[in-house]
Design a protein around this nucleic acid. Structure first.
Lengths: 151, 151
DNA sequence: TTCCTTGCAAACGATTTGCATTGGA
DNA sequence: TCCAATGCAAATCGTTTGCAAGGAA
């Protein structure tokens, strides 16, 4: 049940291609990308640090996350507690939404089929219609109680 | 264009009713509730502090926000920068979604009519179907560029 | 009197930064 | 050589907390 079936090697390759020449894909950064690719949803800096603490100091971890986010390799979200959570960009993972457990805070990615996605997009622009906004995207978080938390 | 047509007096009254007897509706707390009622969307602690700094110290502001959130009078969100933003609960404002400007970060509330809302709810449970979650709610953020930010 | 609320200052935790050093192309 | 990346420690920032004082019921 781990991961989303992404081939680590392929992820690394695509990330490498996407990096501007001025940005190096160092061993530390590779470790971070791999750890992200293993996750099933957005991962916090603390959780990532658990996986790379032997090889990457916290400050470097944060710098890596900042750099990769700037370049679009990953996205930064914030969970219900305001904690930053990172995941690979949608150009790698595909467009998806989040299933959030209101009990434990766990966030899981969910992909939806195109038909549903079309309806979501349509609703989104309908919502925006009143405000004079130019829509660029949308986020849908479905809140619920995950199986383990259901006592 | 300020506010959502909520009558401050009525808001205060309903909040007062909702507070458990052990929680007092002090002048400082009234000020905070009023400031929230004036907003057009979620407001940050810093912004609230601007409006009440003469009468409410920052630590009391935070305590008030915590208390009111615990009681369900208001909800705590986090914007794209992870900054906490507060707004009155949906039992006061009605269920709504957010229109977020990706440029300036401004967040505006948007209500949608019931037909759309039904479709959203339906899509939400569809999204949850795979994960074994018991759905309790959903959040839809529409991202775009607001009029002033469109250069 | 009892409990809740206030105010101030100090403490916190997540994240960022300065700076000297190391490493790659 | 030159610029980017690292590591550590110190700094920042939003937010929380300890504690003593003030107030309402």
């Amino acid at each position: 049940m781990k991961g989303r079936g992404l081939l680590l090697a392929e992820v690394e390759e695509r990330v490498a291609e996407r990096l501007p020449s001025a940005v190096r894909f160092t061993p530390g950064r590779r470790l971070v990308v791999r750890a992200l690719a293993r996750g099933e949803g957005p991962v916090s800096a603390g959780e990532l640090y658990e996986e790379v603490r032997r090889q990457v100091p916290l400050s470097s971890l944060y710098r890596t996350l900042t750099v990769l986010a700037d370049v679009g390799v990953l996205e930064r979200h914030h969970d219900a507690d305001g904690l930053a959570r990172f995941e690979l960009g949608e150009w790698l993972l595909g467009h998806h939404h989040h299933l959030v457990c209101v009990e434990c805070g766990r966030v899981q990615d969910v992909e939806v089929d195109d038909g549903v996605e079309d309806r979501v997009a349509q609703i989104a622009s309908g919502i925006a219609a009143g405000g004079g906004y130019t829509v660029t995207g949308h986020r849908v978080d479905v809140e619920g109680v995950c199986e383990p938390c259901r006592v």
